[in-house]
Amino acid sequence: MSRFWKSRRIRAFIRNRTAIVGLVLAVFMVCVAIFAPFLAPYDPFVQNVHKALAPPGREHFFGTDDFGRDVFSRVIYGARISVLVGVSSVAVGTALGAMVGLAAGYFGGWFETIFMRLVDVLMSFPALLMGLMFLAILGPGLDKLIFAIGLVLAPQVARLAHSTTVALREMDYIAAAKASGAGPFRILFRHVLPNIGGEILVMATLWTATAIRVEANLSFIGLGVSPPTPTWGNMIREGVRWLVVTPWVSVFPGLAILVAVLAFNMLGDGIRDALDPRLYC
């Protein structure tokens, strides 16, 4: 990996203000998620129906929802699930997709034909529907939701990994490594992966944002994370019913999504700019 983390790039990254802002925001989000119990002023699960739909004020910064739960505390706790879903589903999707794409690109032949055809097939499904179908088969649950979103992203990663691997396959130094008797795993990990790792990292940060949005969309259809666990997605969904009446219930989790997506996108852009941008776009 030394090739990838050359200090020139790190310096380029640090010079990039957008990237630093993105990094700071993303770290902030992760911290909020980790330290939620210490940051939230109220228990996000305790209901008090007599205080339902109270407007934002000194007692409740972001008001209360229709069960009388504190929206501020729920937004903080929501970071846990939303960031978790975002990061881990992308990890699942990237790992799976990269594996298939790398192997297909490297080995070629019937293996490549079958798997890349499958990728084509999966990519001709609407993303939301694919999520719905995977969820229907896997059943409900946070782990399954993460897995389902990961599966939705995997074909896209596979295609990216595949095309770059194919481009690299014919390069001289790979041929040299092959000639020197290196096994396929050694070549993939030592020579191919470092070369496309940057791109995959960029895509992964961008897709983290996408995954957070997909969770929100699945929640809108009612198939997100089960109650009473708050996620920004299911908070927005609940709040949308009250949008005309009590906008705060959905506006604050909406803003939280906005900040999170901005953060991960800026981070991804920063990494992209710091690396040699020749291969992307």
Binding site: N217, I236, G254, L258, N265, M266
Partner: peptide
């Protein structure tokens, strides 16, 4: 920066939420 923040804002709003805001 302005153009990027604008375009990122576009990506980050869930589609149904944006639609409802436009309606209102």
């Amino acid at each position: 920066y302005l153009s990027r923040v604008f375009s990122l804002a576009g990506i980050s709003i869930p589609a149904f939420y944006l639609g409802i805001l436009l309606i209102l």
